[in-house]
């Protein structure tokens, strides 16, 4: 029985108004026709083509696409860890080449410094920017309190669980008060339960800290739950397929997973990503044929 879903573009007046307000905010990150070509043994490989989008102040943008679509390359370019082949990246109108503390980054692999305690990890960026130890420590403790890890301030990263490590990584990035927080599949290594908690938790932080977030994921639910807008990437070469404005109100909680509008957006994402993978028929990983055994199928019916 097919379920009647609303059109994923339909916005309630309240949500439409909100997007209007967002679109009047200043642009924090302007990605302008960015392209990236890698040299390889078999000639140049185009990873990204003509990527253009904007992230506005205090917006939460997700970039989604299946593996190999270049979303990690894109975020590494934005962080300054990778150079562009074409186009430019503007942060508050200024071109950004090198990595810097104005673009905080949270990696999937935590990347905490194992030889530093939680507190010293969070202090790292502050000390790099020349803050005195006492001041840096005070600030760091505030951020650690914010992510609820005060009792673990003197623990080493190996003593923490995956979710806790990622909270430290978030605190460490936020301590620099970056213009934009780039998150590259930050919850990809966590189990489903922890991941769900971290998602709500990230929304709490975003609501209560003045920060703009660009979040990379391949998880449809995660993207729809978190984002104001979703940039859908297509692979080979990575390019923007569609930018979806999520017609869900703020503030969100877990109940929204059953909202028809949520399902509509998710359905749309599925359609785009599934359809594009059909077009690129070289991809055999998604559907592989299994010989049908009628007798065995009957057993389970």
């Amino acid at each position: 029985m097919p379920i009647e879903l609303p059109d994923y573009r339909d916005k309630s007046p309240e949500v439409a108004l909100r997007f209007e307000r967002i679109n009047h905010r200043p642009v924090v990150l302007h990605v302008d026709r960015v392209g990236k070509t890698f040299a390889s043994r078999h000639g140049p490989v185009e990873a990204l083509r003509d990527i253009t989008f904007q992230v506005r102040h205090r917006e939460f943008v997700c970039i989604i696409g299946k593996s190999g679509c270049g979303k990690s390359t894109l975020v590494r370019i934005l962080a300054g860890l990778e150079s562009t082949s074409n186009g430019r990246v503007l942060l508050n109108g200024r071109q950004a080449h090198e990595p810097g503390p104005d673009r905080g980054m949270v990696f999937q692999g935590y990347t905490l410094f194992p030889w530093l305690t939680v507190k010293k990890n969070v202090m790292f960026g502050l000390r790099c920017r020349g803050k005195f130890p006492a001041e840096a420590e005070r600030d760091a403790m505030e951020w650690i309190e914010m992510v609820g890890l005060t009792p673990f301030a003197n623990a080493y990263p190996r003593q923490l669980s995956g979710g806790m490590k990622q909270r430290v990584a978030i605190a460490r990035a936020l301590a620099n008060q970056p213009q934009i927080l780039l998150m590259d599949e930050p919850f990809g290594a966590l189990d489903a339960q922890t991941r769900a908690k971290m998602q709500s938790y990230l929304l709490d932080i975003w609501q209560n800290v003045e920060v703009t977030i660009l979040f990379i994921t391949h998880d449809l639910d995660e993207a729809v739950f978190l984002a104001d807008r979703i940039v859908v990437l297509d692979a080979n070469p990575g390019r923007i397929e569609e930018i979806i404005e999520v017609p869900l109100p703020r503030l969100r909680d877990e109940t929204i997973f059953l909202d028809p509008r949520f399902l509509a957006v998710k359905k749309r994402l599925e359609d785009i990503i599934y359809q594009t993978s059909q077009e690129n028929s070289g991809d055999t990983e998604e559907r592989f044929p299994i010989k049908r055994e009628e007798r065995l199928v009957r057993d389970i019916l």
């Binding site: 810097g100 503390p101 905080g104 410094f113 790292f124 960026g125 460490r172």
Partner: peptide, 11 residues
Amino acid sequence: SLLEAAQTLGA
């Protein structure tokens, strides 16, 4: 990745 993380923190 530790070097990259440090760079994004301003090192």
